[in-house]
Each structure stands twice: as structure tokens, then as C-alpha cells.
């Protein structure tokens, strides 16, 4: 009974966290699923978003403006990765790792802006002193300042805008770039530019999520993005498992990232209540993601062994 009670108490917190990380996961979806690039920049750009937002806020900048600039900074990080990849011929995964590493130093500098040391690994922003958009303090209140309301609205806006964008001629070109670069080029699509646009968009959204996560927890830290890519992947994959392969609507697919992230945080909360230590979470997350990534591979292998009519038949029935 106590267990259930405490779980229920923790539910709003999970939903709040889930929505923010769900927005982050949507950013991951754009690179991982749409562009077919595993972009590791996000671990850095999430913290960059938080750092920029908090720094500007404590220096008296309007909070919405701070969020906007945080997002633009994230896009800049994506641009760097994109140029590493397309202009310098560095494999995408390595390009992302390089930017991520560089961002660690940059984030310390951002948070240490104006301080005597020049670098700082955390920067606090109190909801008492600043007009923050979201704060974990109000997550259980039945009032308008409950962060879940704003986060839900923000999520809807993000999904809506992306649905529109990927339906446009430019957006379709980006989807084609991810689906088949050869075909895209043969149809006159500038695949390199599209990869850069996709990376910028993705990291902008991730930094946006970072800006909200920092406000929510009342500080930005240099480590806040560590393992973000894996949490994002977990949310994407959980969302896909729940959705199944029947739904083709792009907006629904994006929304499934949000649902996936919420479920992820509910599960995390359950295992924490069951006595697992917070330090064990990264191990757990990695295992969950590895498992979900392995399942389709095993399934294909098993089906291939089962008979000659293997995959085509499965695809037919699976999509009928």
C-alpha cells in the first residue's frame, strides 16, 4: 500500500521529466530515424542548452529569450557536427563524439562566464529569485504553474511544427536523404546540406529540452547530458514498440517519443522505489536499450532460420 502510494505521489514528477526528455527524444528521432545518423552531439548540446539558458536568466535576460538563444546555441553545435561530417569527411558518429567532447569544455566556460575562475561545473537558478517557466517544486500542484501544463503545450507545439516541416518540400528532401542518399541525389537533392539541416534541427530541439530540464531542476550542470543519447534512444524505441508498425502518421510517431520517455521515467521510478540505487540507472538504461535493439535482430534471425519464405512473407503480413 505504501509502495503504491509513494508511486502515485511520484507519478507527476515522472510525467514532467518524461515530457522534457521526450522533447529531447524527438530531437534524437530526427537524426536516428529520419536521417539515419547516430548523433552523439546531444550529450553535449543538452547541457549547452541548460547552461546558456541559466546563464542568461541569472543575468537578467527574459526567460523566453533565454530559451530561444539556448536553442540557437544547440543548433550551432549541430552545425559544427554537420560540417565535420560533410565538409571534413568525418564519419557522422565520430563527428558527433568530437563535438560532444569539445562542448564539455565550452559548457564549463559558459557556466563560468564572469566568475573569477572562468569555468564552473554547476550554475544554480532559483525559482524564488527568477521567473522560471517550469519548476519541479510545483509539479504536484493543481494550479496553472504546474510545469506539466506548459510542457505538454510545448510538446504539442514541437510535434506540430515538425510535422509541418517534414511535410514540406524541404522536409521531404531531408526524409529522402535519410531513406536513400543515392536516390536523393539522383532526384536533385543536396544530401550534404540536408544532413546539416537535420543535425541542426535535432540539436536545437535537444538544447531546448536542456533549457527546460535546467529550469525544472533549478540548475544546469556540466554532467546533465551524460548518457542523454541512450535515454533518447530508449524513449524512441519504447515508443516504437508501443506503437507497433501499423501507424505511419509522422506526428503520431513523434508523439510516441514523448510517451516512450514518460514510460521510461515511470519504470525508472518503480525500480528506484524497489530499492535500486540512482547510480545503477545508467547500467539499467543501457541494458534496456541494448535489449530492445537486439529484439528485431533476433527476430529476423529466427525467422530466417525458420524457412525459405522468411522475410517477404513476414513483411506482407506485418503490414497488411
Amino acid at each position: 500500500m505504501d509502495f503504491l502510494q509513494s508511486l502515485l505521489n511520484g507519478l507527476p514528477g515522472s510525467v514532467g521529466q518524461g515530457l522534457m526528455w521526450g522533447i529531447m527524444a524527438i530531437g534524437v528521432y530526427i537524426t536516428y530515424r529520419v536521417l539515419d545518423i547516430a548523433d552523439l552531439t546531444v550529450d553535449g548540446s543538452l547541457a549547452t542548452g541548460g547552461a546558456v539558458c541559466v546563464l542568461l536568466t541569472v543575468n537578467g535576460v527574459n526567460i523566453w529569450l533565454a530559451v530561444l538563444i539556448a536553442m540557437l546555441t544547440g543548433m550551432l553545435a549541430g552545425l559544427v557536427t554537420g560540417l565535420f561530417h560533410t565538409r571534413c569527411g568525418i564519419p557522422a558518429i565520430l563527428a558527433g563524439i568530437l563535438t560532444q567532447l569539445a562542448l564539455y569544455s565550452i559548457n564549463l566556460r559558459i557556466m563560468g562566464w564572469g566568475s573569477t575562475a572562468g569555468t564552473q561545473s554547476t550554475l544554480a537558478v532559483s525559482v524564488d529569485k527568477f521567473d522560471l517557466l517550469v519548476s519541479s517544486r510545483y509539479v504536484r500542484e493543481l494550479a496553472l504553474n504546474n510545469p506539466i501544463l506548459l510542457l505538454a503545450a510545448l510538446s504539442a507545439v514541437v510535434v506540430g511544427l515538425l510535422y509541418w516541416f517534414f511535410g514540406t518540400e524541404i522536409g521531404c528532401g531531408i526524409r529522402a536523404t535519410g531513406a536513400n542518399r543515392n536516390m536523393a541525389r539522383a532526384q536533385g537533392i543536396n544530401t550534404e546540406r540536408n544532413a546539416v539541416i537535420g543535425l541542426m534541427l535535432s540539436n536545437g530541439i535537444v538544447a531546448l529540452a536542456g533549457a527546460f530540464i535546467a529550469q525544472y531542476q533549478g540548475s544546469s550542470t556540466v554532467d546533465m547530458g551524460r548518457g542523454a543519447i541512450v535515454i533518447g534512444l530508449a524513449a524512441v524505441i519504447i515508443g516504437e514498440v508501443i506503437l507497433g508498425n501499423k501507424v505511419n502518421n509522422f506526428a503520431v510517431k513523434l508523439a510516441s517519443c514523448l510517451l516512450g520517455a514518460i514510460i521510461y521515467y515511470v519504470v525508472i521510478q518503480v525500480v528506484l522505489r524497489l530499492g535500486l540505487n540512482t547510480n545503477d540507472l545508467k547500467l539499467l538504461t543501457a541494458l534496456i536499450v541494448a535489449l530492445f535493439l537486439a529484439i528485431p535482430y533476433w527476430r529476423d534471425k529466427l525467422l530466417k532460420g525458420a524457412g525459405a519464405k522468411r522475410k517477404s512473407v513476414k513483411e506482407e503480413t506485418g503490414n497488411a
Binding site: 516541416f165 514540406t168 531513406a179 537533392i189
Partner: peptide, 23 residues
């Protein structure tokens, strides 16, 4: 062709070959 895109979407991509892609 782009395997994850619809038949009509593939054709629409081709219909814009050589033209400026806009919003």
C-alpha cells in the same frame, strides 16, 4: 526509390527534380 516513403511521395520528390525545394 526511398523505401520508407510512399509511392506518391517518391513521385512527388521526382516531380521537383531540378526545381527549388521550398517550404
Amino acid at each position: 526509390t526511398a523505401p520508407t516513403m510512399g509511392i506518391e511521395e517518391n513521385l512527388a520528390l521526382a516531380a521537383r527534380r531540378g526545381k527549388r525545394r521550398t517550404l
